[in-house]
Structures are given as structure tokens and as C-alpha cells.
Design a protein around this nucleic acid. Structure first.
Lengths: 218, 218
DNA sequence: CGAATGGCGTACCGTACCGTACGGTACGCG
DNA sequence: CGCGTACCGTACGGTACGGTACGCCATTCG
């Protein structure tokens, strides 16, 4: 009867619907305030009626867009069981680089802006979705690594959540808030790797059980 | 001739105008999306015509509100010349506590939401004002303390900006982004002091020249 | 081949909100 | 007293946008 309405939860968007959601993302990146239903319909070459049939209302469209983008970020390698110092450092470095690449990307900035603007009023918490798939998702992936590091005697901490939050702060610092507030930081891949490396070394200084390796600069 | 129009820069708002701006802040805290010119006029018991005479347009009103709030945050004690370890720790602790109190306050959250939402489009960078009076203002106040600490042989770093950004990250961690995205973290004064103390100790571990004092817990 | 379905384009409605205009009032001043 | 000024309250125009309705075409299937 009815085509997959994405608002009904659990429904994965069809290919055509994904194209619509990508159009929304494109508009968000260009200018968050011009994400209007007319503009989306024009950009996606579809009719507004179809948008409403598929997504219910504007909030449904935005929610589906956030979910759609979130579903693309989840690519990440799985847990390795045994950890030596070099592997631990490498895993943390990977997480830091990935995280910095995500939050400095224009899509993430635009999406977070929308979600934050929306968080001011009650209806439909985009903020919760962004948090669940951003900050908390990365936390749930990092904490097992930290705990494996502790089990291997490489790290010392009582609360893995607290340790992760410190790691999070060392990696992100003021970058995200500055980007969200409109500053144009240009971080290339090399800069991101340097930042990530510094954060990892600092984290190991704070939480490392064995002394960090002699590569420790500064 | 004309009453002080706050849009003309350098003009400080009159008492009546301050009352209007406080009304705007109140509306922002209640619900960022209901800051409409009608609502402001009603809340402030003034006419819309007066709002436009004083502030030019809606952006001017928002800008004046951001400036007005920023002007209230600047209360901070001045530099002490000689620094021993206890004084340095105390000054950093003060900064950390103040900063956490600011960013967890409902006014700051609401204001940052407005500025971030606005940063998506070009016109009138509220984001720049918030950054200048928030992140950068605190940085300009902390960095002299760090440099005094280095001059006293208590700290070791090459770049005071980089050192401050690490301090910033250790203090703020994920708190601001979680609040902006709508999570309700309840941090009381004791929790803030605990967080600030942990951040200061971690910073001193990373950048302290002399070993931190035996009070160092965890 | 004809009917049905899905979807595009567009016209349209209601509403919310920005910005302006206008009438009315209080107050200071010559 | 009379005038100007500043301001409040409110009504109004213009516009942008969310949401709906309708005509039309293409594809598919009986």
C-alpha cells in the first residue's frame, strides 16, 4: 500500500530517499537556514507532497537526515584482544584522528548546528540523536580499548568513563565550539595527525602505567 | 536629537535598554525559538517601534543582547606578580571553576545556541562576539598566568596558546557540547570544584616543572 | 491496450513573524 | 498653557514558509 515512510521507526530509507536526504545534507552545509521544504524538493527534484508522504513533516525529514548521516559514520574496526603498548597507542591515535576528521568536517558542523538550534525548543530531539551517534558512540568504542589497556597493565584508572572524557577533552579541546561558532579553522590531515598524536601522548602521560616510549617529544 | 541607538557601536545601553536586553535573555533561556520581536516587546513592556528605533532590526537586538551579556562576564581579578606553586594552582582552579560555572549556566547555553544557529548563515556574526568574549577572553586572561608560572620555573611549555588549549580541553571536556545538544547535566558547585581540581592536577602533571604537591590524589 | 499507481510540478491556504504606521499618553520646557 | 518629545499599545502590510490539493505523466501490470 504505502511506500516506506521513514518516520515509522526502523525503516531504512530507499535509494531514492537517500538521495533526498543527501540533498538535505547539501543544503545544510551550504546554509543551515535555507533548509526549507521547497528548497529540498527543488534540490532533490521531487515534489513536496512526496516529502510529506515519506517523512511526515519537516521534523521527520530532519530526523531522518540526522539518522542517515549517523548510519554512515559507524564504520570502524573491531576489537583486538591482546594489547601491547604500541598497539594501544595506535588504536588511540586512530580514534583521535577519526574523531577530529568527523568534527572538523563541514557535514558534522552543519548537522550539529541544526541539532543545537533545535535543542532550544522541546519537540523532537535531534540533539539526542547526534549525541548518541557522536559523543556516546565513540565513547562506547573507546572504553573497551581503555579497559583492555588496563587489563594488560598499560593503563591505570578507576573509572573508564572518566578516563574517556579526559581523552575526549585532550583530543577536541576548543576545536568543535570554535567551528560551531563560525570560525574557519583549516586543519589538514597532517595537522589532525599532529593534534591526535599530542593528545594520545598526553593521555598516556596521565593514565599510562608503564612510562611512555622515548618517542615522547616536547 | 535621537536617543542612544545601540547599533551605532560604542554606545552603552541605557538602563531602560538594559531591561529590554534582559527580557531578551529571559526569552532565550525559556525557549530560543520564541525570541520574536512581539514577544520581546510584550515581555519588556515596550513598543516594537521603540525596539526598531533603538536596535535597528532583529539582528541588532540580538547582537546588543550578546554584547550586553558579555559585558557582565568580564569581572575577574587582576594579575598577581609573584607566583609560587600554591598560588598558581589556586589561580588555575579559579579560572576553571569560573569557566565551568559560565558554560553550564542556562544563559550561556541559550546564548551559544543562538549564536551557533546564526553562524550557519553569513549576516552579523554573533558567533564571533561570543567567541571573543568567551573562549578568547578567558584565554587572554589565563595565558599571562601560565607565562608567569613558566617565569617562576613552575611550568614548562613552548607555546602558551597550545598550553592553554590543553587546559581548556581538560576543563571543559564534553560538557559544553552535551549541554548545547540538550542533555541536562546537573553540576552543582561541589561537582564543578571537583572537576576543576581534577583538570588542574592533570594540567600540572602535563606541564608542571616541579613535581605537583603531595595533595595529588587518584 | 487500458487502468492503476507512484511521483513530479505547481498552485494554493493559513499562519507566523518582521518591519512600519498611527493613535494615544505622559512629561518636560518655554 | 501649549508644544515637542519619547514612548506604549496595537493594527496592518508584506513575505516566507509549512503543509495540502490537484493536474499530469511515466511506468507497470492485468
Amino acid at each position: 500500500m504505502m511506500q516506506a515512510s521513514v518516520t515509522a521507526e526502523q525503516e531504512a530509507p530507499s535509494v531514492r530517499q537517500q538521495a533526498v536526504l543527501d540533498a538535505v545534507l547539501g543544503l545544510m552545509v551550504e546554509d543551515g537556514e535555507q533548509v526549507t521544504m521547497d528548497a529540498v524538493a527543488r534540490r532533490a527534484s521531487c515534489s513536496k507532497e512526496t516529502l510529506y508522504k515519506w517523512f511526515g513533516d519537516r521534523d521527520g525529514l530532519l530526523t531522518a537526515t540526522v539518522r542517515w548521516q549517523a548510519s554512515r559514520v559507524h564504520a570502524g574496526h573491531d576489537t583486538a584482544q591482546v594489547l601491547d603498548g604500541a598497539t594501544l597507542r595506535e588504536r588511540l591515535q586512530d580514534f583521535a584522528v577519526t574523531w577530529l576528521e568527523v568534527i572538523t568536517g563541514p557535514t558534522s558542523v552543519a548537522l550539529n548546528r541544526i541539532a543545537i538550534a533545535h535543542a532550544g525548543s522541546r519537540k523532537s530531539n535531534l540533539g539526542g540523536i547526534v549525541l548518541a551517534n557522536g559523543r556516546f558512540a565513540i565513547g562506547e568504542r573507546v572504553k573497551p580499548v581503555l579497559e583492555a589497556g588496563r587489563a594488560a597493565g598499560l593503563l591505570a584508572f578507576a573509572d573508564s568513563e572518566a578516563a574517556f572524557r579526559t581523552f575526549f577533552g585532550l583530543v577536541g579541546r576548543d576545536i568543535q565550539i570554535r567551528l560551531l561558532l563560525g570560525e574557519t579553522l583549516d586543519l589538514d590531515g597532517a595537522g589532525i595527525r599532529r593534534d591526535a598524536g599530542r593528545a594520545v601522548e598526553q593521555f598516556l602521560v596521565l593514565y599510562g602505567q608503564a612510562k611512555p616510549d622515548p618517542k615522547h617529544q616536547r
